[in-house]
Simulated scan of single mutants.
Amino acid sequence: MIVERLAESVARRPCDAIAFSGGLDSTAVALAHVKLGHRPLLVNVQLAESPGTDAPHAVEAARRLGLPLVVRYVPMWEALAAVEEVVKAIKLFNPMEVVNCSVQYIALKLARDLGARTVCTGDAGDEICVGYSFMLTKPREELARYMDPSRWYFCSFDLAKALGVEVKAPFLEAAQHLLAIPIEEKIKCGLGKCLLRQELGDLGQRRKDPAEVGSGFHALYKTLEELGRKVEVDLPLDGPARYLYHIYRKAGLSYPKARRNPCPRCGAELDDKRYCKMCGYYGGG
Protein backbone atom coordinates (compact mmCIF):
# COMPACT_ATOMS: atom_id res chain seq x y z
CA MET A 1 0.00 0.00 0.00
CA ILE A 2 2.67 2.54 1.04
CA VAL A 3 5.37 1.47 -1.42
CA GLU A 4 2.74 1.38 -4.16
CA ARG A 5 1.86 5.02 -3.48
CA LEU A 6 5.55 5.93 -3.45
CA ALA A 7 5.96 4.20 -6.80
CA GLU A 8 3.16 6.35 -8.23
CA SER A 9 5.12 9.42 -7.19
CA VAL A 10 8.40 8.02 -8.54
CA ALA A 11 6.77 7.11 -11.85
CA ARG A 12 6.06 10.77 -12.57
CA ARG A 13 9.79 11.51 -12.34
CA PRO A 14 12.35 9.04 -10.97
CA CYS A 15 15.48 10.23 -9.21
CA ASP A 16 19.06 9.84 -10.36
CA ALA A 17 20.20 9.26 -6.77
CA ILE A 18 18.77 8.66 -3.30
CA ALA A 19 20.14 9.97 0.01
CA PHE A 20 20.28 6.54 1.57
CA SER A 21 20.65 5.56 5.23
CA GLY A 22 19.48 1.96 4.92
CA GLY A 23 16.59 2.91 7.19
CA LEU A 24 12.94 2.24 6.41
CA ASP A 25 12.11 5.51 4.64
CA SER A 26 14.99 5.64 2.18
CA THR A 27 14.75 1.87 1.63
CA ALA A 28 11.06 2.21 0.75
CA VAL A 29 11.87 4.99 -1.72
CA ALA A 30 14.62 2.86 -3.26
CA LEU A 31 12.28 -0.16 -3.49
CA ALA A 32 9.69 1.97 -5.27
CA HIS A 33 12.32 2.79 -7.91
CA VAL A 34 13.33 -0.86 -8.26
CA LYS A 35 9.72 -1.96 -8.76
CA LEU A 36 9.56 0.41 -11.73
CA GLY A 37 12.83 -0.86 -13.21
CA HIS A 38 14.99 2.12 -12.20
CA ARG A 39 18.49 1.85 -10.72
CA PRO A 40 19.28 5.09 -8.89
CA LEU A 41 22.63 5.62 -7.21
CA LEU A 42 22.46 5.35 -3.41
CA VAL A 43 24.65 7.76 -1.41
CA ASN A 44 25.49 7.53 2.27
CA VAL A 45 27.59 9.88 4.42
CA GLN A 46 29.67 8.99 7.49
CA LEU A 47 31.91 11.09 9.72
CA ALA A 48 35.39 9.64 9.21
CA GLU A 49 36.52 10.21 12.79
CA SER A 50 33.39 8.65 14.31
CA PRO A 51 31.30 6.55 11.88
CA GLY A 52 27.70 5.95 12.83
CA THR A 53 25.31 3.02 12.56
CA ASP A 54 24.08 3.45 8.98
CA ALA A 55 26.81 2.02 6.77
CA PRO A 56 26.37 -1.74 7.43
CA HIS A 57 22.59 -1.45 6.99
CA ALA A 58 22.99 0.64 3.83
CA VAL A 59 25.43 -1.86 2.34
CA GLU A 60 23.12 -4.83 3.03
CA ALA A 61 19.99 -3.06 1.79
CA ALA A 62 21.76 -1.93 -1.39
CA ARG A 63 22.95 -5.49 -2.01
CA ARG A 64 19.47 -6.91 -1.62
CA LEU A 65 17.93 -4.22 -3.80
CA GLY A 66 20.63 -4.65 -6.44
CA LEU A 67 21.49 -0.95 -6.47
CA PRO A 68 24.88 0.83 -6.60
CA LEU A 69 25.97 2.47 -3.35
CA VAL A 70 28.63 5.04 -2.53
CA VAL A 71 29.56 5.56 1.12
CA ARG A 72 31.54 8.75 1.70
CA TYR A 73 33.66 9.10 4.87
CA VAL A 74 33.86 12.82 5.56
CA PRO A 75 36.69 14.32 7.66
CA MET A 76 35.77 16.63 10.53
CA TRP A 77 37.03 19.75 8.74
CA GLU A 78 34.68 19.10 5.83
CA ALA A 79 31.75 18.45 8.15
CA LEU A 80 32.42 21.79 9.88
CA ALA A 81 32.56 23.53 6.50
CA ALA A 82 29.18 21.98 5.70
CA VAL A 83 27.83 23.28 9.01
CA GLU A 84 28.64 26.84 7.91
CA GLU A 85 26.88 26.38 4.59
CA VAL A 86 23.85 24.85 6.28
CA VAL A 87 23.48 27.77 8.71
CA LYS A 88 23.46 30.13 5.73
CA ALA A 89 20.96 28.02 3.80
CA ILE A 90 18.39 27.28 6.51
CA LYS A 91 18.97 30.51 8.47
CA LEU A 92 18.87 28.83 11.89
CA PHE A 93 21.43 28.23 14.61
CA ASN A 94 19.55 25.36 16.25
CA PRO A 95 22.20 22.64 16.86
CA MET A 96 19.94 19.66 16.21
CA GLU A 97 18.62 21.12 12.96
CA VAL A 98 22.05 22.19 11.73
CA VAL A 99 23.87 18.95 12.55
CA ASN A 100 21.21 16.72 11.01
CA CYS A 101 20.91 18.95 7.96
CA SER A 102 24.69 18.90 7.50
CA VAL A 103 24.41 15.16 6.82
CA GLN A 104 21.82 15.89 4.15
CA TYR A 105 23.90 18.73 2.70
CA ILE A 106 26.93 16.52 2.12
CA ALA A 107 24.80 13.69 0.73
CA LEU A 108 23.15 16.04 -1.77
CA LYS A 109 26.52 17.55 -2.70
CA LEU A 110 28.01 14.07 -3.17
CA ALA A 111 25.11 13.02 -5.41
CA ARG A 112 25.47 16.21 -7.44
CA ASP A 113 29.22 15.76 -7.85
CA LEU A 114 28.59 12.19 -9.05
CA GLY A 115 26.32 13.49 -11.80
CA ALA A 116 22.85 13.38 -10.25
CA ARG A 117 20.47 16.17 -11.13
CA THR A 118 17.51 14.91 -9.11
CA VAL A 119 17.92 13.38 -5.64
CA CYS A 120 15.21 11.60 -3.66
CA THR A 121 14.98 11.69 0.12
CA GLY A 122 12.89 9.86 2.70
CA ASP A 123 11.56 13.15 4.09
CA ALA A 124 8.08 12.93 5.67
CA GLY A 125 8.28 9.17 6.18
CA ASP A 126 8.48 9.54 9.95
CA GLU A 127 5.70 12.11 10.11
CA ILE A 128 3.34 10.14 7.87
CA CYS A 129 4.07 6.62 9.09
CA VAL A 130 4.34 7.45 12.84
CA GLY A 131 8.07 6.83 12.94
CA TYR A 132 9.08 8.72 16.08
CA SER A 133 8.65 6.96 19.40
CA PHE A 134 7.10 10.05 21.04
CA MET A 135 4.30 9.93 18.47
CA LEU A 136 3.12 6.60 19.84
CA THR A 137 2.27 8.15 23.23
CA LYS A 138 0.56 11.31 21.99
CA PRO A 139 -3.21 11.63 22.46
CA ARG A 140 -4.97 11.01 19.14
CA GLU A 141 -6.05 14.64 18.63
CA GLU A 142 -2.56 15.95 19.35
CA LEU A 143 -1.03 13.33 17.05
CA ALA A 144 -3.40 14.35 14.27
CA ARG A 145 -2.27 17.98 14.64
CA TYR A 146 1.37 16.91 14.53
CA MET A 147 0.70 15.02 11.30
CA ASP A 148 -0.51 18.19 9.56
CA PRO A 149 1.80 18.81 6.55
CA SER A 150 1.50 22.58 6.98
CA ARG A 151 3.56 22.24 10.19
CA TRP A 152 6.44 20.30 8.63
CA TYR A 153 9.82 21.65 7.51
CA PHE A 154 12.43 19.68 5.57
CA CYS A 155 15.75 21.40 5.08
CA SER A 156 16.67 19.32 2.04
CA PHE A 157 14.72 21.69 -0.22
CA ASP A 158 16.63 24.77 0.96
CA LEU A 159 19.91 22.87 0.77
CA ALA A 160 19.14 21.71 -2.76
CA LYS A 161 18.61 25.30 -3.87
CA ALA A 162 22.00 26.26 -2.45
CA LEU A 163 23.64 23.31 -4.22
CA GLY A 164 21.88 23.62 -7.56
CA VAL A 165 20.15 20.23 -7.51
CA GLU A 166 16.51 19.20 -7.38
CA VAL A 167 15.11 17.26 -4.43
CA LYS A 168 12.08 15.00 -4.55
CA ALA A 169 10.37 13.60 -1.47
CA PRO A 170 8.04 10.77 -2.58
CA PHE A 171 6.48 10.42 0.88
CA LEU A 172 5.60 14.10 0.87
CA GLU A 173 4.22 13.92 -2.66
CA ALA A 174 2.03 10.97 -1.62
CA ALA A 175 1.04 12.56 1.70
CA GLN A 176 -2.63 13.08 0.82
CA HIS A 177 -3.15 9.35 0.20
CA LEU A 178 -0.89 8.07 2.98
CA LEU A 179 -2.37 10.36 5.64
CA ALA A 180 -5.79 8.93 4.81
CA ILE A 181 -4.71 5.59 6.28
CA PRO A 182 -6.21 5.43 9.81
CA ILE A 183 -3.74 6.18 12.59
CA GLU A 184 -4.89 3.03 14.40
CA GLU A 185 -3.60 0.96 11.48
CA LYS A 186 -0.22 2.68 11.65
CA ILE A 187 0.35 1.92 15.33
CA LYS A 188 -1.48 -1.38 15.81
CA CYS A 189 1.70 -3.42 16.28
CA GLY A 190 3.02 -1.07 18.98
CA LEU A 191 6.05 -0.03 16.92
CA GLY A 192 6.78 3.02 14.84
CA LYS A 193 6.12 2.55 11.10
CA CYS A 194 4.14 -0.61 11.72
CA LEU A 195 2.61 -0.82 8.24
CA LEU A 196 5.83 0.08 6.45
CA ARG A 197 7.72 -2.57 8.41
CA GLN A 198 5.19 -5.16 7.32
CA GLU A 199 5.49 -4.15 3.67
CA LEU A 200 9.29 -4.19 3.67
CA GLY A 201 9.55 -7.56 5.42
CA ASP A 202 13.17 -8.40 6.26
CA LEU A 203 14.27 -4.99 4.96
CA GLY A 204 12.01 -3.28 7.50
CA GLN A 205 13.41 -4.60 10.75
CA ARG A 206 15.95 -1.88 11.46
CA ARG A 207 15.52 0.31 14.55
CA LYS A 208 14.98 4.04 14.15
CA ASP A 209 18.23 6.05 14.37
CA PRO A 210 18.26 9.81 13.79
CA ALA A 211 20.51 11.09 11.00
CA GLU A 212 23.10 12.41 13.45
CA VAL A 213 23.51 8.93 14.98
CA GLY A 214 23.35 6.98 11.75
CA SER A 215 26.06 9.17 10.21
CA GLY A 216 28.21 9.69 13.31
CA PHE A 217 27.68 13.44 13.00
CA HIS A 218 26.52 13.62 16.63
CA ALA A 219 30.25 13.92 17.40
CA LEU A 220 30.02 17.43 15.97
CA TYR A 221 28.19 18.67 19.07
CA LYS A 222 31.30 18.42 21.21
CA THR A 223 33.49 20.11 18.61
CA LEU A 224 30.97 22.91 18.09
CA GLU A 225 30.72 23.43 21.85
CA GLU A 226 34.51 23.71 22.12
CA LEU A 227 34.59 26.23 19.28
CA GLY A 228 31.82 28.20 20.96
CA ARG A 229 33.98 28.84 24.01
CA LYS A 230 36.40 30.79 21.81
CA VAL A 231 33.94 33.32 20.39
CA GLU A 232 32.09 36.32 21.78
CA VAL A 233 28.37 36.63 21.10
CA ASP A 234 25.64 39.06 22.13
CA LEU A 235 23.12 36.46 23.31
CA PRO A 236 23.08 34.25 26.44
CA LEU A 237 23.84 31.09 24.47
CA ASP A 238 26.01 28.18 25.46
CA GLY A 239 26.89 24.79 24.01
CA PRO A 240 26.93 24.27 20.22
CA ALA A 241 24.32 27.02 19.67
CA ARG A 242 26.87 29.64 20.74
CA TYR A 243 29.23 28.87 17.86
CA LEU A 244 26.41 28.37 15.37
CA TYR A 245 25.06 31.80 16.26
CA HIS A 246 28.56 33.19 15.68
CA ILE A 247 28.43 31.71 12.16
CA TYR A 248 24.91 33.07 11.68
CA ARG A 249 25.91 36.63 12.57
CA LYS A 250 29.19 36.42 10.61
CA ALA A 251 27.05 35.60 7.55
CA GLY A 252 25.13 38.84 8.08
CA LEU A 253 21.91 37.08 9.03
CA SER A 254 19.29 38.41 11.45
CA TYR A 255 15.75 37.56 12.52
CA PRO A 256 12.77 39.40 14.01
CA LYS A 257 12.37 39.26 17.77
CA ALA A 258 9.01 37.99 19.01
CA ARG A 259 6.54 40.40 20.57
CA ARG A 260 4.67 37.53 22.18
CA ASN A 261 6.08 34.35 23.67
CA PRO A 262 9.78 35.15 23.06
CA CYS A 263 12.55 32.63 23.61
CA PRO A 264 14.46 33.52 26.81
CA ARG A 265 17.77 32.86 25.05
CA CYS A 266 17.49 34.33 21.57
CA GLY A 267 14.19 36.23 21.54
CA ALA A 268 12.69 34.36 18.59
CA GLU A 269 9.10 33.17 18.92
CA LEU A 270 8.47 29.94 20.81
CA ASP A 271 5.90 27.47 19.55
CA ASP A 272 2.99 26.24 21.65
CA LYS A 273 5.24 23.67 23.34
CA ARG A 274 7.78 26.36 24.29
CA TYR A 275 10.28 25.14 21.73
CA CYS A 276 12.46 27.59 19.82
CA LYS A 277 13.20 26.45 16.30
CA MET A 278 15.76 29.24 15.89
CA CYS A 279 18.19 28.28 18.68
CA GLY A 280 16.90 24.92 19.94
CA TYR A 281 15.77 26.10 23.39
CA TYR A 282 13.08 23.96 24.98
CA GLY A 283 11.20 25.05 28.08
CA GLY A 284 8.31 22.64 27.96
CA GLY A 285 9.32 20.81 31.12
Rank of each mutant, 00 (worst) to 15 (best):
Leu36Tyr: 14
Val70Cys: 03
Leu41Arg: 13
Gly52Glu: 09
Ala111Phe: 06
Ile2Phe: 02
Cys276Val: 00
Pro264Val: 14
Pro75His: 07
Val71Tyr: 00
Val29Gln: 03
Cys276Asn: 10
Glu142Phe: 01
Ala144Tyr: 08
Ala28Val: 02
Leu41Cys: 05
Glu4Thr: 14
Leu237Trp: 02
Glu166Met: 04
Ala107Pro: 00
Leu47His: 05
Cys101Val: 07
Ala241Phe: 00
Cys194Met: 11
Ser9Glu: 10
Met76Tyr: 01
Lys91Glu: 15
Ala211Cys: 05
Tyr281Glu: 07
Lys193Trp: 04
Ala107Ile: 03
Phe154Asn: 13
Glu49Gln: 13
His246Leu: 00
Leu224Val: 01
Leu220Tyr: 10
Ala160Pro: 01
Gly239Glu: 04
Pro40Trp: 03
Met1Glu: 14
Glu199Ala: 09
Gln205Asn: 00
Ile2Arg: 10
Asp148His: 04
Glu199Tyr: 08
Met147Glu: 01
Glu269Thr: 08
Asn261Gly: 06
Asn261His: 15
Lys273Thr: 10
Ala116Gln: 06
Leu41Thr: 12
Gly190Phe: 14
Pro14Ser: 01
Val99Arg: 14
Gly285Val: 09
Arg207Asn: 12
Leu179Cys: 12
Leu235Gln: 08
Cys276Met: 05
Ala32His: 12
Phe217Pro: 06
Leu227Arg: 15
Glu225Ser: 10
Tyr73Trp: 15
Glu184Asp: 15
Tyr243Lys: 02
Pro240Met: 05
Leu172Thr: 04
Asp126Leu: 08
Phe134Glu: 04
Arg265Lys: 14
Asp209Ile: 01
His218Phe: 10
Pro40Cys: 07
Pro56Val: 09
Leu172Arg: 14
Arg249Thr: 06
Gly125Ile: 02
Asp209Ser: 11
Met96Asp: 13
Arg229Trp: 05
Ala160Glu: 09
Arg72Val: 14
Phe134Gly: 03
Met96Phe: 14
Leu244Asn: 02
Asn261Tyr: 06
Cys129Met: 15
Pro68His: 03
Tyr255Asn: 02
Leu36Pro: 10
Leu136Ala: 01
Gly283Tyr: 00
Asp148Arg: 05
Lys257Thr: 13
Thr121Asp: 00
Leu80Ala: 08
Pro14Leu: 03
Arg72Leu: 15
Leu220Ser: 11
Ala175Arg: 15
Lys35Tyr: 12
Lys230Thr: 01
Ile18Tyr: 11
Arg64Asp: 04
Asp113Cys: 03
Gln104Cys: 07
Ala169Pro: 10
Glu185Leu: 14
Arg242Asn: 01
Leu196Trp: 08
Gly252Tyr: 08
Ser50Pro: 00
Val43Gly: 06
Ala82Pro: 09
Ala175Lys: 15
Gly115Leu: 04
Lys138Phe: 14
Tyr255Asp: 02
Leu163Cys: 08
Gly122Gln: 07
Ser21Cys: 10
Tyr153Trp: 13
Pro56Ile: 07
Gly192Leu: 12
Tyr73His: 15
Gly52Arg: 12
Lys193Ser: 05
Tyr153Gly: 00
Arg140Tyr: 09
Gly122Asn: 05
Pro95Asn: 00
